[in-house]
Design a protein around this nucleic acid. Structure first.
Length: 424
RNA sequence: GGGGGGGUGGCCGAGAGGCUGAAGGCGGCGGUUUGCUAAACCGUUAUACGGGCUAAAACCUGUAUCGAGGGUUCGAAUCCCUCCCCUCCCGCCA
């Protein structure tokens, strides 16, 4: 969410930001309306506060007279009239602020100047690692996974519906191995605090990270408690310090959390649905960082490297893609996608998306820090990225390490976790 | 699920319709004093949103904020209603 001041003081910057995202045409009316409503709001605030000041003065005077045992009926009548007026004005102010809020919530973050303009055709591959294996003779992961008894999609659909997976036998153990491997590396080598978050969160939390109100249809909700199943650990972990003021020397903060992620995937039917590439429930290790305005840029580089490091250690060929403005997520100011090569599917699979939200998320979640003693609090910069998502990584492992006889070699780093060299 | 006790500033803790943005203490910051450390004493100590002044601050000024939201009242931390959270006891439960 933007500071409402952008509507007053940085309107050109805002317009340009929307232009670079390619959404200026759609959002121009919203911005114009927002600008007008922002002015309206200030006029109303002045009107209300003027009357409140009068009312307060009258109340003081009433108190004084009462103490002196004097009559104050005339003042009381004045105060009552003012009260009525204030009530009306406040109602107007309320609806004006609601409208302003709606407008602000519709405007996405302004991407950094270093982010290319335009849509996904302008995405840039900025880094490549490893040699993608040729697809010839490589079976897709769903075939291999089924054959090795690791993945059972048919029975999952019986038990839960389409878009769910049973991991079984070595498949289940592989999930557990990845979990431990990811967490160990990020905690021991990259210095993250390990967090095990709740998977059900309340409405304020979902609103804090921007899942609500706009994307309520994408989330699973509980029937009786107004709780939501998290779509990513980003939600509970970023909200850890919601409504708090942190000390400057506690920054940067870095958290790594494993969680199940629950997504209805409303509207994405038919896209990447084969195998385990898009399911309603999947596992992910998420990296979350709180930074200052000064160092969030380098923090994004560090976080992205941490995620890449996992893929390198697994030996999976991958690339880093800087997303163009139009392809960058709503709240993000800059995003790198990490894509791993799946030779069986014959596609680059997004296994991580690393973003710097600048203060956009923190303003909404009200997470601040005090830069120095006696200084005014400022919003932190929040960052997050997968480190990494399990199902697509599993797909890549099953395909990249596939042997001619249908078995799959286990990447070196996973052998101690998996207790075997080969999946057969 | 049933019953009790609570939520006040960075923290602890008073206050029970007006003189309370909030006593007192701790902590923080600034200062005075003292060979150093320490102590003592004095001062100071929130956030948000407006307005004025400004290049921008500082500053001045208004409003709001005592878990959240409504209500009563000329006036609410204080009274009423709804909700949330914490805590204790009983029941149930992995």
């Amino acid at each position: 969410m933007h500071d409402l001041r952008v509507l007053r003081e940085q309107i050109d910057l805002l317009r340009d930001g929307m232009r670079r995202r390619g959404v200026l045409d759609t959002l121009a009316p919203v911005i114009d309306r927002g600008q007008a409503v922002e002015r309206e709001r200030r006029t109303l605030i002045q009107a209300v506060e003027e009357r409140k000041a009068q009312r307060n003065a009258i109340a003081q005077e009433v108190a004084k007279r009462k103490r002196a045992k004097e009559d104050a009926d005339d003042l009381i009548a004045q105060g009552r009239a003012l009260g009525d007026e204030i009530g009306q004005l406040e109602q107007e102010l309320g609806s004006t602020e609601a409208e302003l809020n709606r407008a602000l919530l519709e405007i996405p973050n302004i991407t950094f100047a270093t982010v290319p303009e335009g849509g996904e055709e302008n995405n840039v591959i900025v880094r490549e690692w490893g040699t993608p294996r040729a697809s010839a003779g490589v079976k897709p992961h769903w075939e291999i996974g089924a054959k090795l008894g690791m993945i059972d999609i048919e029975r999952a659909s019986k038990v839960s519906g389409s878009g769910f997976v049973f991991y079984r036998g070595k498949g289940a153990r592989l999930v557990r191995a990845l979990l431990n491997f990811f967490m160990d590396v990020h905690r021991d080598e990259h210095g993250y605090e390990e967090v095990w978050p709740p998977l059900l969160v309340n409405r304020s939390t979902m609103t804090g990270t921007g899942q609500l109100p706009k994307f309520e249809d994408d989330a699973y909700a509980t029937r009786t408690d107004d709780l939501f199943l998290i779509p990513t650990a980003e939600v509970p972990v970023t909200n850890l310090y919601r409504d708090e003021i942190l000390e400057a020397d506690s920054l940067p903060m870095a958290f790594v959390a494993y969680s199940k992620c629950f997504r209805r995937e409303a509207g994405s039917a038919g896209k990447d649905t084969r195998g385990i590439l898009r399911t309603h429930e999947f596992d992910k290790v998420e990296l979350v960082r709180y930074a200052t305005q000064e160092n969030s840029g380098e923090q994004l580089e560090a976080l992205t490297r941490h995620a890449e490091n996992i893929l390198e250690r697994l030996g999976i060929p991958h690339r880093r893609k800087l997303l163009a403005a139009g392809d960058t997520g709503f709240s993000s100011a800059m995003t790198y996608d990490l894509e791993a090569w799946a030779p069986g599917v014959g596609a680059w699979l997004e296994v991580s998306s690393c973003s710097n939200f600048a203060d956009y998320q923190a303003r909404r979640a009200n997470i601040r820090y005090r830069p120095g003693k006696g200084e005014k609090p400022r919003f932190v910069h929040t960052l997050n990225g997968s480190g990494v998502a399990f199902p697509r990584t599993i797909a890549c492992i099953l395909e990249h390490y596939q042997n001619a006889d249908g078995t799959v070699s286990v990447p070196d780093v996973l052998r101690p976790y998996l207790g075997t060299d080969v999946l057969s």
